[in-house]
Design a protein around this nucleic acid. Structure first.
Lengths: 212, 212
DNA sequence: TATGCAATCCCCTGATTGCGGTATGGCAAA
DNA sequence: TTTGCCATACCGCAATCAGGGGATTGCATA
């Protein structure tokens, strides 16, 4: 059974070369190709493709918006973005919207067939620079650690964590097996160290700076 | 100039087959291969390789810990993890520690040479399932929105937001330009709607469910 | 026009919190 | 052994908060 594909791409030349790439490779059935995404929901519902090749920069409705729409009713179809944009915003918006792969147009002729195969096998085909962007995004959140170190002691951290769960002093005392007065003492020290003067300030600071 | 490589892998058989894979491919210079990471800092500093192939499950010092150590003094060397682990924890810990690629051992014989080339070109070679894990990690934070709708009115949302910043009732009143009693009224309604009974509970619920 | 709802303000009572102390036992480093 | 730090506990007071009322205005909608 051939793989059913739909293409969204406003550039006619590129649309045609994608189409011939697919027919040369064999085993692919191009159900349709469209120059815009205005009817994307209806078209995808009707055709029920296995894979969608989606340009980003299109008139009327852009490709990322289209992905969002598709994902509202179909989480199964595999969507590969085909685009010239390799900036953070476009890549992450597309991934966030629910794209499964992200191929830069300069690699299309070499990698398209591989990418389609890979996405059907449960992978996430990405051009090299895109992959690097995605993983360096994961690596961002590290360089804090040393900076926001308020020198909280073990018990103080536990107290703060319990507080952040929404517990009152009484409940914290019960949870940690200590008296409510000890909780008060810990809390006082925490306030000093975090430079705050109320529960909410402490909790919002703790959450925002990932101390909990 | 050949690409300089170091291997860390405790399994002797695999270490030798990696070594022969590299020599067959040509243009690679295997500087050294080690069965453990105890001396990783010294070894990497001395040899100054272009690429490191790193196993995860090794005695004494595991591969992820080793990556962390290397990254403390060298951000340039490209590190590819070679492992059997395809679970979330290992993958994200490794990426987070500073790995540039993540190749499952079952793909090594097919993909190793490609992966080395790709990582040197600024890419992030990953086995298909790994790539999918990484991008689905980006996609997590969406599917709520409709569920946690507590029907807060506009003013109630503003009040909650102000509260979550760490403001007291008095400060909220000042910020919203209303009396403290009105703030009280809003807060009471918020508690009803969120099914909570204190500031912290409300704030931690609001932050955790992304209402703010 | 009546009804509903958001937004505003007020009062009261009891509970909780914020903040200033003080104090003791344990443990580790100097 | 003295000093410092942590964890524990208690006291007291002023401020704030929680929760129960009730009330008015304005706007939209039935």
């Amino acid at each position: 059974m051939p793989v059913k594909i739909i293409i969204y791409e406003d550039n006619t030349t590129l649309r045609e070369s994608l189409s011939s790439l697919l027919s040369l490779a064999g085993d692919y059935q191009l159900l349709a190709s469209y120059a815009d995404c205005r009817q994307v929901a209806e078209q995808v519902t009707a055709a029920d493709p296995d894979v969608i090749l989606m340009d980003i920069d299109m008139p009327e409705v852009n490709g990322i918006e289209a992905v969002r729409k598709i994902r509202q009713f179909n989480r199964k179809v595999q969507i590969i973005m085909l685009t010239v944009f390799d900036d953070n915003t476009h890549v992450f918006d597309a991934m966030y919207a629910g794209a499964n792969g992200y191929l830069l147009k300069k690699y299309v002729s070499d990698k398209l067939i591989d990418a389609i195969r890979e996405v059907l096998e449960g992978g996430a085909p990405m051009s090299p620079t895109i992959a690097r962007m995605v993983i360096s995004n994961l690596q961002q959140p590290s360089p804090k650690v040393s900076e926001n170190d308020y020198q909280l002691t073990g018990r103080e951290k536990e107290t703060l964590q319990s507080l952040a769960k929404g517990n009152s002093f009484k409940m914290i005392a019960a949870e940690l097996g200590i008296s409510i007065d000890t909780v008060r003492t810990h809390i006082k020290r925490i306030y000093d160290k975090l430079h705050v003067r109320s529960q909410i300030e402490a909790v919002s600071k703790a959450i925002n700076e990932k101390l909990v």
